[in-house]
Design a protein around this nucleic acid. Structure first.
Lengths: 352, 352
DNA sequence: TGGTTCGCCGTTAGCGTTAACGGAATGTAT
DNA sequence: ATACATTCCGTTAACGCTAACGGCGAACCA
């Protein structure tokens, strides 16, 4: 039931060795599953280890081997469901490897970034996954200099071509979302972009434009609004769109969070979704199906991106060359209930 | 711009010492900010360290000192905004300490729990925060035996009285939410509970009952539904409540996720919130204000709970006795737009 | 039978850091 | 001048583990 040992002093490999009547080295060999141990000896040691509940000190091991069993996940912030999905994927992929997941948020603060660099610079990490790196070239440089394997998730292209990265088909996703709205009959489609410094935001904007042009529609600059990927921004830009002389009949938000801001603005104005205006998001965060009306959005396989980043990282750690530096996972349009055909083919506005 | 050093071999304390013309021990003293070093020597060494960008190996340090600078956050799952809030609080509180946050999810799987225990059992963690521990007494036992400091967040009382823990005033929060519905005129208030094995779920149920009894209302067993804290459960139990001969005029869901399930069910049935039925949640997750209509809910200061857990943990690590083993942070009702007076209980009808 | 290979295991020597102790130089009290 | 405290720094010896090497016996080949 409860332990007899009052102090439970840490066991060492040597004590196991003594109990087994062998040298510490032999125990080490068994623990490392190396072949050159007689089956009988191995079994005996394994049994003793199991009985004593012995686990070797990772600190000592790390010191000898230079590996610590830690993977760093560095994120910009911990305040959106977006990041949670990625964390989940990373955690799941890491779990069977025995590596442990260390999370840190920089919140865009320069000081924290440097602190983080100092922490990992002693080799205290086996590899890093950088999410939504913004202006991170210094960081990337530093990692490379220290030969720390890393993978960037959802990065901007400006980090250079030789950066291992995982992303999603932002362009194609944005294009298909726009095409969907076009197919419903919409001709004036508003677009609320994400932080323009982010590659993924640029790609989405570009996919939107491409779809319009393919249909022979010249994008109206008034309908393309800058955004920040935050809720507020979705709210404000929607307000601005509604105030246009000819407001759009549909709004494509650069991510789900802004789409929710869009919902709030439309509600404040008494504009019904999807009857009076259609809304499409991007990401498909966990709550997207739960809001009212359930949000039609472009699904980005965030958890899979996390998993993929881990597998690329592990390959680097093991010295296996990557077969592709840049991996883009497919996005897909998830049609729910936030879109319908425009009320009138021209323009219209609902007022309470 | 970029580094001249092609291989950037790890520096050791000894090399710094050599450059400074002192012994390694003196450098160690400087790095540990110990007093017995001449100011001139200290300055010289500090300068050399800064120039070389030297950081001492944590592995070696950990081996000597027995501390690793890691804090474990063990969660049940990574699929709700609930946990993200806690993570955020923990990360923020940990950041200035230099300790690093290791996250692992058990997903309720027994095997993973044991793996996790094996990982930390080598002292590879300085302390642990267990969130929503379910049937964790074995874990807690093991931690205690190994003298690993830990704190439990949102735990069940059955872990025993001597477990350091952080929670929220679930009972008071549930009571005030129920009182609010009563004050609006509701007399038939449905309750969808959380996993009954969880202490916080029990407390909320109990707070609900207490509010009713204080008003002289005998709780109708039909109106009290079991739940699981998951979205589906909110959906199903709402359906069941609607199918009652005398359905409730308001529903109090045990957490926000279930309240969203409730929204979905009501929408599927064409029941408007809050006109036809009022809904209250619990937690106040990030999206609670973003859904339509914005959810009235009991705010649980999850991030603060995380922060508090960290401070309790740090005290334990430093050997400072805790002034309170159990800390309960205050919940507060956040009134938004999901509630109104009941449509037809003899009182008047509310219209916006 | 002598030599070679091979499986198994022990010995030695650190990895980079720091606790504990000691010692030299200077200052201070008797 | 002697005794003693103080300041600053070096020496030694680990912490627990494992790479590298070497050695011993047994099995194999000629």
């Amino acid at each position: 039931m409860s332990s007899q040992q009052p102090t439970e002093q840490r066991l060492t490999i040597r004590e196991i060795a003594e109990a087994a009547g062998v040298s510490a080295m032999t125990v080490s060999r068994v623990l490392n599953k190396r072949p050159d141990v007689a089956p009988a000896t191995r079994e005996k040691i394994e049994q003793l280890v199991a009985e004593a509940g012995f686990v070797r000190s990772r600190a000592a091991r790390a010191m000898r081997k230079g590996r610590h069993g830690l993977i760093d996940l560095v994120v910009l912030s911990l305040d959106s469901a977006y990041i949670l999905e990625i964390i989940r994927g990373v955690e799941e992929a890491l779990e069977p490897t025995g590596l442990r997941l260390v999370i840190s948020a920089t919140n865009g603060e320069d000081q924290r970034e440097r602190q983080w660099l100092a922490k990992i610079s002693d080799g205290w990490t086996d590899g890093a996954i950088l999410v939504l790196a913004q202006g991170q070239s210094a960081r990337v440089q530093s990692l490379r200099r220290r030969r720390t394997p890393f993978v960037v998730v959802d990065h901007q292209g400006e980090l250079g071509p030789h950066v291992p990265s995982v992303g999603a088909t932002n362009w194609a996703g944005a294009r298909s979302a726009t095409e969907y709205l076009l197919s419903l009959g919409h001709r004036r489609i508003g677009f609320i972009g994400g932080s323009p410094t982010l590659g993924c935001a640029q790609e989405r904007a570009s996919g939107y434009q491409a779809a319009l042009k393919a249909e022979g529609i010249e994008p109206d600059p008034d309908l393309v609004r800058p955004g920040t990927f935050l809720h507020e921004s979705g709210y404000e830009q929607t307000m601005a769109l509604l105030d246009l002389p000819r407001p759009p009949t549909a709004i494509f938000a650069g991510n789900d969070t802004m789409a929710f801001g869009c919902y709030s603005a439309l509600r404040a104005r008494g504009v019904r979704v999807p009857d009076a205006i259609s809304v499409v998001g991007f990401d498909d965060v966990l709550v997207a199906p739960l809001v009212i009306p359930p949000l039609t959005t472009v699904r980005q396989p965030l958890a899979d991106m996390g998993r993929f980043a881990v597998s690329m990282l592990l390959r680097q750690i093991e010295g296996i060359p990557l077969d592709a530096l840049r991996v883009e996972l497919a996005t897909s349009l998830v049609v729910r209930e936030s879109c319908s055909a425009p009320a009138h083919p021209g323009s219209q506005q609902a007022q309470p």
